Computed example of a mutant assay.
Amino acid sequence: MARSDSEGTGATIRDVAVQAGVALSSVSRVLTGHPDVSPAMRAKVEAAVAELGYEPDLLAQSLRSGSTKTIGFVLRDISNPLFANIARATEQALRRSGFSMLITSSDGHLDVEARNLALLRRRRVDGVIVSLVSEEEESTRAALAAINGPVVLLDREVAGLGAAAVLCDHYSGVYRATSELLARGHERIGLVTGALTVRSSRERLRGYEAAFAAAGVPVDRSLLAMGSFEADFAKAEVIRLFSQRDEPTAMITGGIASAAGALQGLRQLRRAIGTDVALVTLDEWPMFDVLAPDLASVSRDSGEMGTAAARLMLDMLNGAEPRTVIIDTHFTPRDSVGPVRRVSPAPRKAARKRALK
């Protein structure tokens, strides 16, 4: 009795060949997506597959071909809407080319990230797309180097890895946003974003500093809060920045979670956005649209990022060399960067005490 290639129906690839009236090799070419198949042949085989309810044994296919037709995707934080949108666009692009995607989330933990990469390697994925928690962690670098297949980095740079990358032009977006705030008279501009161990934070700081230099205004390093993309960090840093005697008149927050935390901190301090303090968010989230005033932002196309990552992966699986794709950022000034109303010292001191309780 022939071995079944399908646990669900018991139909084998041989049954499909008999049903379609074609050779076994012809069925195999159709099922593996071989280009040397006529439309008539493909139609016959696909009709037989549908009629018999045949489901191929993917494990057996991967052992024969050496390909699992699966791409691993390691996210820094799957709860972040930006990453969710990137993953969705990546999965859609891969699916159109016959690939599936296996997603893991590191939740911002370096040890989890290394374990996820090792897991995907053991699952024999054909390649890995990854947004790293840190570019400098040795365990992560070692896990990446051990991947048997192409690697695509999302907005990260790891020297010596030989990976492809989708990079965002954070420098230009933050430069334009900072320049706009400076042109409106703001010189005490807080910057809250992630640690300098990732490219996005370094490029945002570079754009911020370049805008100050172009305006001939010195940077006050006490206004920089760079350590995490988490909301709790942003909230605590906003409260710290506004505890200074000469508090910020504007804020730039790096990432959706950072913006959410900053908003919580400003609300706790009873600072009105657009009047007491100007605010620019880095990345947009539809939920921000319900806020008043409208928030100025530096945005990037998350769908374009995901599609580009999938395209780079597929190209390398077909023999192409690793390359880098740059995604533009766009600064959109809105009502949250209006003129700032100075708060009198007494209410400022009272709000600060309430926030620190």
Rank of each mutant, 00 (worst) to 15 (best):
S6T: 02
I13Y: 03
D15H: 13
A20Y: 11
V22M: 07
L24N: 03
L31T: 02
T32I: 05
G33E: 14
H34Y: 12
P39W: 14
A40M: 13
M41R: 11
A43Q: 15
K44I: 08
K44L: 12
A47H: 04
A48C: 07
L52Q: 04
G53I: 00
G53L: 08
A60K: 14
S62H: 10
S62P: 13
S65D: 06
S65Y: 12
S67E: 15
I71R: 05
G72V: 00
S79I: 10
F83W: 09
R88V: 08
T90N: 08
E91A: 05
Q92P: 04
S97T: 07
L102N: 04
T104Q: 02
S105D: 11
S106F: 07
D107S: 04
G108Q: 07
H109T: 01
R115Q: 12
A118E: 14
D126A: 04
D126C: 03
G127V: 00
V130P: 03
L132R: 00
V133F: 13
E137Y: 10
A142E: 12
A142W: 02
A145D: 06
A146R: 12
A146F: 14
I147G: 02
I147E: 05
G149R: 09
L154N: 04
R156H: 11
R156E: 09
G160N: 02
G162R: 06
A165W: 13
L167H: 04
S172Q: 14
S172M: 08
R176D: 13
R176S: 14
L181K: 01
G185K: 11
R188M: 08
R188T: 05
L191S: 01
L191F: 09
G194H: 12
A195W: 07
R199W: 14
S200F: 10
S200Q: 11
L205Y: 10
R206H: 10
Y208M: 02
A214P: 07
G216A: 04
V217S: 01
G227H: 10
S228I: 01
S228P: 10
E230I: 01
A234Q: 06
R240A: 02
F242D: 04
Q244F: 15
D246I: 06
E247K: 08
P248T: 00
A250T: 07
M251L: 15
A257K: 11
A257G: 00
A259N: 05
A262K: 08
Q264D: 15
Q264S: 15
Q264C: 12
Q268N: 12
V277N: 04
A278Q: 07
A278E: 09
V280L: 07
T281W: 08
M287G: 09
V290Y: 15
L291T: 03
A296G: 11
V298D: 08
V298P: 09
R300C: 06
T307V: 10
A310L: 03
A310P: 13
R311V: 13
L312I: 06
L317I: 01
L317D: 01
T324L: 01
F331Q: 03
F331L: 05
P333S: 00
P339Q: 12
R342W: 13
S344I: 06
A350V: 14
R352V: 01
K353D: 13
L356Q: 15
L356R: 10
